[in-house]
Write a protein that binds this DNA or RNA. Structure first.
Lengths: 340, 340
DNA sequence: TGAGTTCGTCGAACCGGTTCGACGGTTGTC
DNA sequence: GACAACCGTCGAACCGGTTCGACGAACTCA
C-alpha cells in the first residue's frame, strides 16, 4: 500500500513537505506542490485513516446510535437515519452505525476509543441512560429527541406540544366534539418516550380549553396487533368523529381497518396523523398529518455537531435546544363531522 | 485520556507487558496480569482505535455500501441493513454505513484508507461498477445480490430463478391458467437489477412448460404511481386470475387497490409476492409470498466476510456463490380460480 | 556590505498501540 | 554440576501520518 513516504520519494521531497503540499497548511512553492500532487495522483495515494486519526485526534467519523426496538416502527426510524447519513456525507463525515441494544456501553466504547468525533443519538428517552456517558465523553453529542435534562448536549426535536394542540384545534375548528387520540404503546412511555405524553398532554389540555371530549388510548406498534387494537378502539368509541394518531404503525394499519369496517375519511371519520410526508408516500397514507420532519431534524443535528467538532463553536459554549414547528399537511382526510 | 502507558505505570510494568497482559498473546504471570487488568479497569482504559488500527492493520470495522435509490423501496433495504448490522455486532465488528451515490469512489476511499477490514455491498447490479474497485482492494468483499461476474468476491442471494418457478408452479397447480407478473420498473433492470429478469425469465419459462399464459409487466417502485399502475394492469388483464409480485412497493399498495376495486384474495384473485415475513408484518400484507430472507442473507455475508478477515480462509481460496432456496410462506391468498 | 525578514524545505518528535528479539532466572535432564 | 529449555518481562522498533523548530537561500533595507 502506498504511503506518504512513497509520494515524497517520488516527488523528491521530505515526508513533511509532501504532507504540507497536500494539506496546504504551510506555504509551498507551486512547483513542488504540483510535483507532490501529481505523484500522489499517479501512485493512487490515499491517507491511512488510522494514522491520520492518531496524529490529529480526528477521525472524520460521526457515530450514530440507533436502536431498532421491537416497539419502535422501523420504517419510521429509517427516515432519521437517512437524514443523518446524507448530511454527514455532504459535510465530509462518514457514519458509524451502532444498533447495539446496550446503548451506554456502545457509546462509551465509541467515544473512549476515539473512533468518532461526535455522536448523534436517536430514540432519546426522558431519562436516557446514554446521557451521563455522553456528558463525560470528550466529543460533542447531538440528540434527535428531547430528554428530561438537556445539559451538555445539543437537542433537536419536533415541538410535540404544539403538534398536539394543532391536531386538536384543527378538528375542533371543523366542528368535531368527540376525539380519540391513539398513542404509542404504554411501555414506550414507561421506557421514557416522552414525546408520547408531551403530545398527549397538550392535546388533552387543548381539548379541555375548547370544551370537547378527547380520549387518549394506547395502541401497539406492530402488526397485526395494532389492527386489532384499532378495531377495538373504534368499537369502544362509536361516538367519536375525529381520530388523532401519534403512532406510525397505527397510521399504516388504519386504511385496512377502515376498509374492513366500510368507513371512509373524511366522510365517516376525520383523521389526522403525525408522520413525515415520505412516510405517507411509502405507505400510501391518505390522511392529513403533522409533518415530523425527520430529514430536517437529522440535518440540523449533524450540522450543529460538525460546527462544534470543527470548533466554530467551543465545547463550553451554551448548548442548543431547538424545536421544529409542526406543520399540518392537508391530504383531505378531515371535514366537518357528519350530522348523526 | 488514559493510554496503555498510564496503565503500565500504574501496574509497575513495561508498556509491552501491559499490552501482552491485556491481549494474552504471550504468557504472563497471574500476578502481573491481574495487576494490569485491575489498573486498566480502575483507570477506565479503552484502547485508541486509530493507534491499534495503525499497528495491527485491522480496524474491526466492516463497510456497508447501501444506496437509497429513488427506485428502490427503502423499507425493503432496511431489512438487509439490519441483518448485516446485527450480525456484525455479534461478531465484534462495527459498521461504517456509506450511502454515497458514487459507490466506486466511496468504496475506494474506504478500502484504501484502511478504515474497514472488509465490505458488504448491497444493491448489486449485473455489471456493478464497484466490483473492479473491490477486486483490486486488499480487503475481502461480500455481496448480497448476484452480479454477472463473481470472481474475487463472495456472493449471497436468493435463488430468484427457483423463486419465479415456484410462484408459477404454485398457481398453476391450483388451476390458474392466466397469470400476470408485476416486476420492478424497467429502469431498475436497465441499471442492472438482474434479479428482476432472473425471476421473470424463469417464470416465463415455467409458464410455457406448463402451457399457461403469463404476462410480464413493470410497475413503479414508489407511491402513488404504483397504485395507478396496478389499476391499469388490472384493467388491462381482466382475464387474469393469478397475480405474481416481484416488487415490494406493488405489494404494499395492492391491498388498497384491491379494496378500491372491491376485489378480495383469494376469492377474486390469487396473489403471490416475494418479500420477507418481516416486511409482510410491517405492511400488514395478507398475501402469501416467497420469503426473501434478508436477515439470513445479511448474516451469511457478514459471517463469510469475517471468516476471510480472520484468515480462517485465505484470500486466494476459492470464493463462494451461495443461493438461498425460496420458501413459500402461505398466508392464504391463493386458491383455485373461481369459475367464470 | 551586513543585519534582519521572509519563504520554502527538512529532520525529528510525536500520537498510542503491537510485536520482535533479547535477557535474566528458574527448572529439568543427564 | 553443566547445559539446555523454558518462562516472564523489558526495551526498542515500527505502523503512517502531522507538526514544530530549525535552517539555508533569497530578498530588503539601511
Amino acid at each position: 500500500m502506498v504511503n506518504i513516504g512513497d509520494v515524497a520519494r517520488a516527488a523528491g521531497v521530505a515526508r513533511s513537505t509532501a504532507s504540507y503540499a497536500l494539506s496546504g497548511k504551510r506555504a509551498i512553492s507551486d512547483e513542488v506542490r504540483l510535483r507532490v500532487q501529481q505523484a500522489a495522483a499517479e501512485l493512487g495515494y490515499t491517507p491511512n485513516a488510522g494514522a491520520r486519526a492518531l496524529a490529529t485526534s480526528r477521525s472524520n467519523v460521526i457515530g450514530l446510535l440507533a436502536q431498532f426496538l421491537p416497539d419502535e416502527f422501523a420504517p419510521a426510524m429509517l427516515q432519521y437515519i437517512q437524514g443523518v447519513a446524507n448530511t454527514a456525507r455532504d459535510l465530509g463525515y462518514d457514519i458509524l452505525l451502532s444498533s447495539d441494544p446496550d446503548g451506554p456501553a456502545a457509546l462509551k466504547r465509541l467515544t473512549d476509543s476515539r473512533m468518532v468525533d461526535g455522536v448523534v443519538l436517536l430514540n432519546v428517552a426522558e431519562d436516557d441512560e446514554r446521557l451521563p456517558v455522553l456528558r463525560t465523553a470528550p466529543q460533542p453529542g447531538a440528540l434527535v429527541g428531547l430528554p428530561g435534562d438537556c445539559t451538555g448536549v445539543d437537542v433537536f426535536d419536533l415541538d410535540f406540544e404544539e403538534a398536539g394542540r394543532a391536531m386538536v384545534e384543527h378538528l375542533v375548528d371543523l366542528g368535531h366534539r368527540d376525539l380519540v387520540l391513539v398513542s404509542q404503546p404504554a411501555h414506550v412511555v414507561e421506557r421514557g418516550g416522552a414525546y408520547v405524553w408531551r403530545l398527549q398532554n397538550a392535546a388533552i389540555e387543548a381539548a379541555a380549553q375548547r370544551g370537547v371530549r378527547l380520549r387518549p388510548v394506547h395502541g401497539s406498534s406492530s402488526q397485526p396487533d395494532i389492527g386489532r387494537d384499532l378495531h377495538a378502539i373504534l368499537d369502544a368509541h362509536p361516538e367519536a368523529t375525529g381520530l388523532l394518531l401519534n403512532n406510525e404503525a397505527a397510521a399504516a394499519a388504519l386504511p385496512t381497518v377502515m376498509h374492513d369496517r366500510s368507513l371512509s375519511a373524511p366522510g365517516d371519520l376525520s383523521v389526522v396523523g403525525r408522520y413525515s410526508d415520505e412516510f405517507a408516500r411509502t405507505f400510501s397514507l391518505p390522511f392529513s398529518s403533522i409533518e415530523s420532519a425527520p430529514d430536517r431534524l437529522g440535518r440540523m443535528a449533524v450540522r450543529q455537531l460538525v460546527r462544534r467538532i470543527e470548533h466554530q463553536i467551543p465545547g463550553d459554549a451554551p448548548h442548543v435546544v431547538r424545536f421544529v414547528a409542526p406543520e399540518l399537511v392537508d391530504r383531505g382526510s378531515t371535514a366537518p363531522p357528519r350530522r348523526r
